[in-house]
C-alpha cells in the first residue's frame, strides 16, 4: 500500500508569558492509505496539537507534513482549504454541527463547498446518514438529537467528500461508554469499508486496541506500542 501521510521532524513550542512549552519535539510518523492508527497520551501532551498540524489547522515551528506527496506546511491558505476539503475529514470531541441546518444539510456542507449541486449532495448525504443509522433522523436539527446521534452526523459529514484521511480527536469524549463504543465501531467500520486512513486520538485503551497500530505521545515524541 502506498504512503498517504508522512510527518517528519515536527517541532512545536507554545509560549505563555515567560515560559516556553516544548510540546512536540521532532515527531515522526508514516501512515499508509487505508491504515488506522490510534494516538494516546496524557492530557496536555499535545495530541490535539499534533492532529491539528496534520490537518493543516495549526502551524509548525519546523518539520514537514506530506499528504499524498504535498508538503502542506508550505501551502497558502487557499490551497490548504482546498486540501482540507478534499483530502481530510475532521471529527472533534464536540460535534460542531450548524444549529440552523438539519442532519442532511449539515452532512451536505463539505460537498457543496466545491460543487454546489444540492440534489447530488442530498443523495449522498442521505446514503451516509442511513449508513450511520440515522435514516429516521434525516431532518432533525442538532438540538433535537441525542449526543450520540449528533456525533454520528459529524462522522457522516467527515466522510462526505470521501477524504483519504480521517482525523478524529477524542470523538467519543462527550459520550457515555455504551454510546462511545457504538460510535467508534461505526467509525472504524466505515474507514475500513471505504479504505480511508484513520488517525484517532483517544484516552481509552479499548478504542486504541481497535486500530491497526497504536502510538503514544510522550515527551513530545510519538512512540509505537505493541
Amino acid at each position: 500500500m502506498s504512503e498517504l501521510l508522512r510527518v517528519e521532524n515536527i517541532y512545536k513550542t507554545f509560549s505563555s508569558g515567560e515560559e516556553t512549552l516544548n510540546i512536540l519535539n521532532g515527531v515522526q510518523l508514516s501512515l499508509k492509505a487505508g491504515e488506522t492508527i490510534s494516538v494516546t497520551g496524557e492530557s496536555g501532551s499535545g495530541k490535539s496539537t499534533l492532529l491539528h498540524i496534520m490537518g493543516g489547522l495549526d502551524t509548525t515551528d519546523s518539520g514537514s507534513v506530506n499528504i499524498d506527496g504535498v508538503d502542506i506546511t508550505k501551502l497558502d491558505e487557499t490551497s490548504l482549504s482546498e486540501l482540507r476539503n478534499k483530502k481530510i475529514g475532521f471529527i472533534f470531541q464536540s460535534h460542531y454541527l450548524l444549529e440552523e441546518f438539519d442532519a442532511v444539510e449539515n452532512v451536505m456542507l463539505p460537498f457543496l463547498m466545491n460543487n454546489y449541486n444540492k440534489n447530488e449532495a442530498r443523495k449522498k448525504a442521505v446514503e451516509l446518514l442511513v449508513k450511520v443509522g440515522l435514516g429516521e433522523r434525516l431532518h432533525h436539527h442538532p438540538s433535537k438529537m441525542s449526543g450520540g446521534e449528533r456525533q454520528r452526523v459529524a462522522i457522516a459529514r467527515a466522510f462526505m467528500n470521501e477524504p483519504p484521511l480521517i482525523l478524529a480527536d477524542e470523538p467519543t469524549g462527550n459520550l457515555d461508554n455504551k454510546n462511545a463504543e457504538r460510535v467508534v465501531e461505526l467509525l472504524f467500520d466505515l474507514s475500513r469499508e471505504r479504505g480511508h486512513a484513520l488517525v484517532i486520538v483517544t484516552h481509552s485503551p479499548t478504542i486504541a486496541a481497535m486500530s491497526d497500530l497504536r502510538y503514544v505521545l510522550r515527551g513530545g515524541l510519538l512512540v509505537q506500542e505493541d
Binding site: 482546498e82 475532521f90 460542531y96 450548524l98
Partner: peptide, 14 residues
C-alpha cells in the same frame, strides 16, 4: 465562532 471553525476546517477560505 465554533461554526466558523468547522466551516474553515471543512474547506472554507477566510
Amino acid at each position: 465562532k465554533r461554526e466558523i471553525g468547522i466551516l474553515r476546517s471543512t474547506g472554507f477560505v477566510p
